[in-house]
């Protein structure tokens, strides 16, 4: 049984069905409202959804049954001293301690919940399995930030990243390191993968420095947003390249996931069952996930409303749902 939480521009769609097969819509929540992200915390079984209402702003909701009623959480909210208001809640990530949930928002800030989601909440939050003090976060246009004290203090860590979108003479002084996605390998926490704004990178030292794994290694483009890793294999990662920053669609009209099995030394296309002609799709940052099983289940959704899935690590794909509103996020429950 597979359950997918699909955040769309017009509501949350809960898909259920046999693993590898077509999925049925089990529930639709927050109709008409943009659901930026939805996930299930595997520790508590509780579901969370970030909902941005067109008129009434961003709000966080939770439930123990995604086909039933959702409750509104208190917060996240900036303190008065910040003189800022949350515009979007981008991502929700379980912490290491049982009662901690992290939430990344725009304008870039990290919120922490101490009570399991009754009150909480950037786009990439990478806890360190077993060590609640160590965190890495990724912020669009602001780079990678590391903490060794559970977020009390932070240091920026962008060594090795090349912001090609900045004129060469200005790169030395820039702070504009545009991280698009970042994931930590849970079985080897010193290993992180990153999709950058033009560039795919790996870190072997917990994010202290970064190594180019996107240039001349088989990718049709090193631009993109989605990134997935195999939680059981720190050498294995997946990206969905888009043509370029000025043309954010699947390259050459072909939908392809690219996999590395050797930490980014080489990439190969996984395309069997995916549209391979006249298919100009956009896959957003949070719209790609895995189910952690073996063989690995992989799912991603497009702004054109399709959700694709593979139950065999990407060797074969099928359309598991179609005709949905533009897909913003996909997570396995």
């Amino acid at each position: 049984m597979t359950e997918l939480l699909v955040g769309t521009k017009k509501g949350l769609v809960v898909l259920r069905g046999a693993r590898g097969g077509p999925l049925e819509i089990a529930a639709r929540a927050f109709p008409g409202e943009a659901v930026e992200f939805a996930m299930r915390d595997p520790r508590s079984g509780r579901y969370f959804a970030s909902v941005t209402h067109g008129q009434f702003g961003p709000h966080l909701f939770y439930t123990d049954d995604p086909t039933g009623k959702w409750q509104q959480a208190e917060g996240p909210a900036f303190p008065p001293s910040a003189n800022a208001a949350i515009e979007r809640i981008w991502v929700i990530e379980p912490g290491v301690d049982d009662d901690v949930v992290w939430c990344g928002v725009a304008p870039a800030a990290l919120f922490r919940s101490g009570d399991g989601g009754g009150g909480l909440c950037l786009h990439s939050i990478c806890p360190w399995p077993g060590d609640p003090n160590r965190l890495a976060i990724g912020i669009s246009s602001a780079g990678v930030w590391l903490s060794d004290d559970a977020g009390k203090s932070w240091r920026r860590s962008v060594g090795g990243l090349v912001p090609r979108y900045i004129p060469e003479e200005a790169r030395k002084d820039t702070h504009a390191f545009c991280v698009h996605n970042m994931r930590r390998a849970p079985r080897q926490p010193t290993t992180l993968y990153m999709q950058f704004h033009g560039g795919v990178y790996r870190s072997d030292n917990a994010g202290e420095t970064w190594i180019d794994i996107g240039t001349d290694r088989g990718l049709p483009s090193d631009f993109g947003f989605p990134l997935a890793i195999d939680p059981n294999d720190p050498d294995r990662a997946f990206v969905v390249p888009l043509a370029a920053d000025m043309d954010r669609v699947t390259p050459e009209g072909r939908v392809r996931v690219y996999e590395t099995l050797d930490r980014g030394k080489s990439w190969r296309a996984l395309e069997n069952g995916l549209p391979q002609s006249k298919a100009y799709l956009t896959v957003l940052r949070q719209a790609f996930c895995n189910d952690g099983a073996s063989p690995l289940g992989l799912y991603f959704g497009a702004t054109s409303g399709e959700v694709f899935g593979s139950a065999d690590g990407g060797l074969t794909w099928s359309t598991v749902a179609a005709h949905l509103p533009p897909v913003a996020s996909v997570r396995c429950a």
């Binding site: 209402h53 008129q55 009434f56 702003g57 208190e74 909210a77 900036f78 008065p80 208001a85």
Partner: peptide, 19 residues
């Protein structure tokens, strides 16, 4: 009605743009 917090005005107390 605490559930209304954040819906009409944001956490700065500013009226939401489309309200």
């Amino acid at each position: 009605y605490p559930a209304l917090r954040g819906w009409i005005v944001d956490e700065r107390g500013a009226l939401r743009r489309h309200v």
